[in-house]
Amino acid sequence: MFAAATAAIIIAMTLALVRAFAGPSLYDRVLAGNSFGTKTVLLIGLMGFLTGRPDFLDIALLYALINFAATIAILRFFSYRTPKGTPAEPRSAQSGGGEA
């Protein structure tokens, strides 16, 4: 049961990797990195159950915190700009704050 779940998580990690390799835009890569972090948290939790020591669950929780904080920190750097050639999305009021 846990082995099947682990296999599914690893397949999902591979898919996130594909998006991180191919992702044309900045946002794709940020999202791939974030979801890869989530998959890592899940994998660490599952590995604890696979080895019969669910103590690792605490560690997985801390990873989730780190992952969240890191994604917020990365996104703080950018006011996301849509690349030329794609239809422009409506901007929210916050995203225009840092523009020169």
């Binding site: 044309p24 835009s25 900045l26 890569r29 703080r76 750097f77 950018f78 006011s79 700009r81 690349p83 030329k84 050639g85 704050g97 840092g98 523009e99 020169a100």
Partner: peptide, 16 residues
């Protein structure tokens, strides 16, 4: 720099 929010994109102008 930490609170910059500078405008950046990894797609260059000449590519598109």
């Amino acid at each position: 720099s930490a609170r910059g929010g500078r405008e950046v994109s990894d797609i260059d102008e000449e590519e598109t």
